[in-house]
């Protein structure tokens, strides 16, 4: 459920022309559909090669989610990114991906 802050953000986005808003949502759905499966796989295998790509995925999703008003997802993605950058425990990264999956799976086409 959206907080009042998130509601304000969504209202602000809504001031963009409807065509621009629809375009933003469409682009975000495409981005999530492309990146979330890769993140799931990285979290499942914890393979170094996949984790390198996962860093870019959580970085991009962290910024994009905020633009469409998915603030909690943005915070989760940023936390996952910080964890990878700081060489934190990979189990914690996997848990954050599970959380991100719950928040964003509705966007997957």
């Amino acid at each position: 459920m959206a907080t009042s802050e998130e509601g304000a953000v969504r209202a602000a986005v809504a001031r963009l022309p409807e065509s621009a808003l629809a375009s933003l949502r469409e682009a975000f759905a495409e981005e999530v559909s492309e990146r979330l499966p890769r993140l799931r796989e990285a979290a499942r295998t914890l393979s170094p090669a996949l984790l390198a790509e996962a860093l870019r995925d959580v970085h991009t999703l962290g910024s994009s989610a905020y633009v469409v008003g998915e603030n909690d997802a943005a915070r989760t993605a940023r936390a996952a990114e910080a964890l990878l950058i700081d060489d934190g425990p990979l189990e914690a990264f996997a848990a954050l991906v599970v959380e991100l999956d719950k928040r964003l799976s509705g966007w997957v086409r």
Binding site: S23, L24, A27, T60, V68
Partner: peptide, 9 residues
């Protein structure tokens, strides 16, 4: 920007 969302925003 490499993100389509950011470019459209």
């Amino acid at each position: 920007d490499d993100s389509a969302v950011q470019r459209r925003f």
